[in-house]
Amino acid sequence: MTTTVPSPATTSARSWWRRNRWALVALPLALALMAAASADRVRSLWWEQGLHSPTTAGQGQAVTFHQDVRDGLGGTRPVDVEVRLDAVVDAGALPDGLVVPAGARAVQVEMTLSADPDVVLRGCSLAVRDADGTRYDYVADAWGATQAVSPCVPADAPGPAPSLGDLDDVLTPDSTPERPATWTVSPVVVLPADVQVSDVVLWWQLPQHVVLPTARG
């Protein structure tokens, strides 16, 4: 009776794989966990530096946006607002002194917003985007004109200002009238003439933002 003796090489090779099979199965998982554990900077250096967390509205429809904005004093304050994009049209009446550079055009973004009068909405940023995702910002003080600093609130009744902690006692109290519960704004954005606006983005603190698609977008 002869029995074949397996060669030492195959015996040890097979047994190494078998011996380590569970570790090998766990290896990809361990590598992924290691990468995730050392990736805390992905959040602060990338995620929170761009528009990464959208709240998208249906075309022509209103969307409710909520965010707990970090207030710079160690806490948060709520932003609760309902936004609807009415239209993005070529600006008919330009703001005082606005000079549109050659090769560019001015568009007017008409929006209707509604929020509680005591919600702090000052300090918002607005931009339009094209189909490629290129962002064209609203700039209050540019191209010769001066528009409202916050494009999402009425210029004459912007509502409460964010708290500055201890400085609040020193500042003169806000004398502007109370902001209405619902209002419209139409800020003007200058962008290249050949760009088609596909959506409007509005944000208070990155990365959360409101996306309002236009009729074409």
Binding site: P101, G103, A104, Y136, D137, V139, A142, V190, L191, P192
Partner: peptide, 8 residues
Amino acid sequence: GAAQPGVP
């Protein structure tokens, strides 16, 4: 200063 994309 800040340059708008597409506007030199």
